[in-house]
Amino acid sequence: MTPFLYSQGLPYAWAWAIATIVEILLIALPVMLSVAIVIYLDRKIWAAMALRKGPNVVGPFGVLQSFADGLKVFLQETIIPAAANKALFLIAPIITFTVALLAWAVLPFAKGAMLADINVGLLYILAISSLGVYGIVIAGWSSNSKYPFFSAMRASAQMISYEVSIGFILICVVLWSGSFNLGAIVEAQRGFGLFGLINGFWCSPLLFPVWVMFLISSMAETQRAPFDLTEAESELVAGYQTEYSSMAFALYWLGEYANVLLMCALNATLFWGGYLPPINLPVFYLVPGLIWLILKILFGFFVFSWVKATVPRYRYDQLMRLGWKIFLPLSLAFVVVISGYLMLTGHFA
């Protein structure tokens, strides 16, 4: 977009600034809108699996339910507890929401179409996702209340534990694609499996188990069921959100779903071939890449909702055991096995 504005006679600095702002809006606004739709989808899927109807009153089939909820929450009063640390209490939900939107900057939406085409894209995503824990920890501490505090402790331990195995899983992908750049990772999946017929790392027998681990770890990382121990209502009321009301609460709600969407997008980009069609035949390339990416993200989200609707919540010690005693050694072993296999087959030559 910058070259276009530059050719229209704007100075380069202005062209760059305007183009960047427009591109940010082009990514952030659809993401926020899709968060609202995805919340509706989540409730519908969950209802269907419980043989209920779900939201069906506001708008046709209830599609406007999320917007009605948003409006309601927006008009409510913001209550700040008297003993809370006021500044931090208000900053915390903003951190969660901002961080959830920041990581979208490096995701490729089509070939070469990303906001920031940086060489360390995957590291950037790791860095940003490791910030997500601050929103929760600060909320837990600044609320000056016991349940949020316990929840914050759980959240930080949980997210740090699963970040370790996610790091190793990402290393497997990086080893195979030879780049930290997400665009290059997607391109490395072109014609990857089944004699060049399938796009996507998932169909390799070595990377398929890694993908399963990534899916489960990303559920733990986003604190979705069955790993939603930070807001386990039977133990912690609503966890770190207990003292929040009105817009601050809505920001957590949006941030949480934006994070889930981001994890689905990462899953699609790293293992399912991103904007590439799932099958490497010319016919499938007629559909635009963005549509394939959205379909893959929605599929990932369906899996998330499916798991939420069917799997009971983990106990805290089971969660820690899964993270440290199963996923950490397994993912480390896969790093060794995959790098050994790649050396053996002369992948790096």
């Binding site: 860095a127 490791s130 501490w141 914050a152 402790m153 930080s156 970040e163």
Partner: peptide, 12 residues
């Protein structure tokens, strides 16, 4: 992502 979280943990 890691060191400061632990700092925060301990200080809290």
């Amino acid at each position: 992502g890691a060191v400061a979280v632990l700092f925060l943990f301990v200080v809290m």
